[in-house]
Amino acid sequence: MGNKMQKPANENLLEIRNLHVRYNTDEAVVHALNGFDLTLKRGETLGIVGETGAGKTTMALSIMRLLPKRIGEVTAGSIIYDGIDILKASANAMLKLRGKRISMIFQDPMTSLNPVQTVGSQIYEVLELHYPEMTREEKHRRVDEMLELVGIPPARKDEYPHQFSGGMKQRIVIAMALISKPELLLADEPTTALDVTIQAQILELVRELKRQFNTAMILITHDLGVVNEVCENVAIVYGGEVIERGTIEDVYVREKNHPYTEGLFGAIPDLVTDLPRLKSIPGYMVDPTNLPEGCKFADRCGFCTERCRRENPILHRLSDTHFIKCHLFEEGSNHE
């Protein structure tokens, strides 16, 4: 998008390097993220696509430093947000970051609002937390403006969450997330719980507001279509690693893709070609309590070789923007 050009090049808002996160549960140790790498520029929109359990939400919670207490543990790696080391920042510094500079939208709008507080006061609270210098009237005015922006009549701000429909609740959640004009918005499957028509409206709203506020966004989803609509770049996640990353054109043109990405595309119904059955990826998601030594996709991959089982591939560079983590794309080899 155009606004990307206004910022100096090479200015990364968020850098995640080799992040390892595990959950220590009573039964087993779950390796949720295994060397997760990600960079995000200011104003960039990145889609993160992956199956359930691929570590998408874990990544978002790590950025917020809100992994479940006593269970979630970062074992290696770093998260640098605009020069701040998130993993080492003080609790107070995190309180100032959350909701002001980084906001998050959750999957289920039905449960992400406090049922006994009016929606207006919940939005107001964000301002109260982060803009103590603002006068009451100013805050109320901002709340009204924000509600207007997300398409909720400000007159309804004294109503309670149960009086709104799912789509409207998600609009309110979006208002809460954006009222502080954050630099980064983490949207964790914001439309999964909504029906398709509402989904389109919400995505349009997010895209519009993102443009207005010049917010960078990480959109977490398992829907390749949603990513195509909203994002400039996409990262495909499998087994707690980014296995492919590129611009929408790089990935969606389907010339060179990670075998897993190809599998994902194969599972989407297509209006043009007539298929008796959708192709699904054989096998199950890799067991995060018992990770293989080599490539995590090896068991389900049609191109699997002896080497894949032995050695985890590195991220191979196909172009300035396109990267794939697969032995098939090693310098010199050619993939059909």
Binding site: M64, S103, M104, V173
Partner: peptide
């Protein structure tokens, strides 16, 4: 969780 996310 959401309340934590906006810095409460």
């Amino acid at each position: 969780e959401a309340a934590k996310c906006y810095g409460s």
